[in-house]
Structures are given as structure tokens and as C-alpha cells.
């Protein structure tokens, strides 16, 4: 903190608490503000705390619909299951090739509905909040 000198300085733990109240989109945007902020935001402890705060505050359902175009959307846990947001499938034009297997801590596991040429299924992990996916290595039957 000393290096900040007389600058209008907000303590690190307070910045953390403010970040914990922001949605993921804002936090990701602010991660390019400075190297220090980037390290705060991408630290495992912050990610863990942010996840648990939002799990307490808001539970969301992921819905896959096909009529006939497949789309994914998030819905609130209320009586009418109001739509919270429409998701863009991370792999363009491939939404219909995958189905939801399960989810944990906001990460969704999606196997491909059909076998690939090597008779294995493609399996991806999708984090809709940060719009990133990870391909699992192919399973051999």
C-alpha cells in the first residue's frame, strides 16, 4: 500500500468486497484495469469467494430447448421460471450436436449426442458465465 503514496487509495480487502458484489461481466471487464486488479480477479481465492456469494444469492437453471433450433437459456428459480439470460452456444452452429449431461459450480458438462468417427464421444466443459469451453481428451471405448 505504501507505493500508492498519497493517492486516493481504497484498501485491497475493500476492493475485493466490492468485486464480490459485481456480476462476472463487470469483473472480467475490470480485469484489464491494472496488473494488480488482474491478479486479484484471477486469483483462485477470489473466484471461490465470488462463486459462493452468488450461489447464496441467486440459483439459476440452464434450459436446453429444441423447437427445432436448439438454444440454451438461464432461468430464475421462481414460480414462472423467468428467463434470466439467453446464452450463445460457444461452438458456432454446433448447439444441436450436444446435450446437457450435468453441471457443478456453474460448469456444464456436454457430451456430443453421436459418436465421432473414432467411435468416441466429444465431451466439453462449458462455463457460460465467462463464455469459455474446454475439450476433454477423447475417451476410448
Amino acid at each position: 500500500m505504501v507505493e500508492e503514496g498519497t493517492k486516493n487509495h481504497i484498501p485491497e480487502d475493500m476492493v475485493m468486497d466490492i468485486f464480490l458484489k459485481l456480476p462476472v461481466k463487470s469483473i472480467i471487464r475490470f480485469s484489464c484495469a491494472s496488473k494488480f486488479w488482474n491478479s486479484l480477479i484471477t486469483s483462485p481465492i477470489f473466484i471461490k469467494n465470488h462463486l459462493s456469494k452468488f450461489k447464496q444469492r441467486k440459483q439459476l437453471f440452464l434450459l436446453r430447448t429444441s423447437n427445432p433450433i436448439v438454444s440454451y437459456s438461464l432461468h430464475l428459480d421462481n414460480n414462472s421460471l423467468d428467463r434470466y439470460s439467453q446464452l450463445e452456444f460457444p461452438i458456432q452452429n454446433k448447439a444441436d450436436l450436444f446435450e446437457i449431461y450435468g453441471s457443478c459450480n456453474g460448469i456444464v458438462c456436454l457430451p456430443s449426442r453421436f459418436m465421432l468417427i473414432n467411435s468416441s464421444k466429444r465431451i466439453i466443459f462449458w462455463n457460460p458465465s465467462i463464455r469459455k469451453t474446454l475439450d476433454l481428451p477423447a475417451l476410448r471405448s
Binding site: K21, S26, R29, C32, S34
Partner: peptide, 30 residues
Amino acid sequence: LDVLNQAVADRIENKSVEYVRGFFGIDNDF
């Protein structure tokens, strides 16, 4: 403290990076 932090969060939620740099007085070292 919670009220204060929430007030700041509400204010910056939809703001640009340049705005929050000014708001928090931080320098861009990238």
C-alpha cells in the same frame, strides 16, 4: 460496510474500464 460496498458496486457495474480507473485512482500498468 455492506451498504457502502453495494453502493460502489451499483455505481460501477456498467461503467467502462477508464471510468473505474479514475474512480479508484489506479494507474494502468499494462
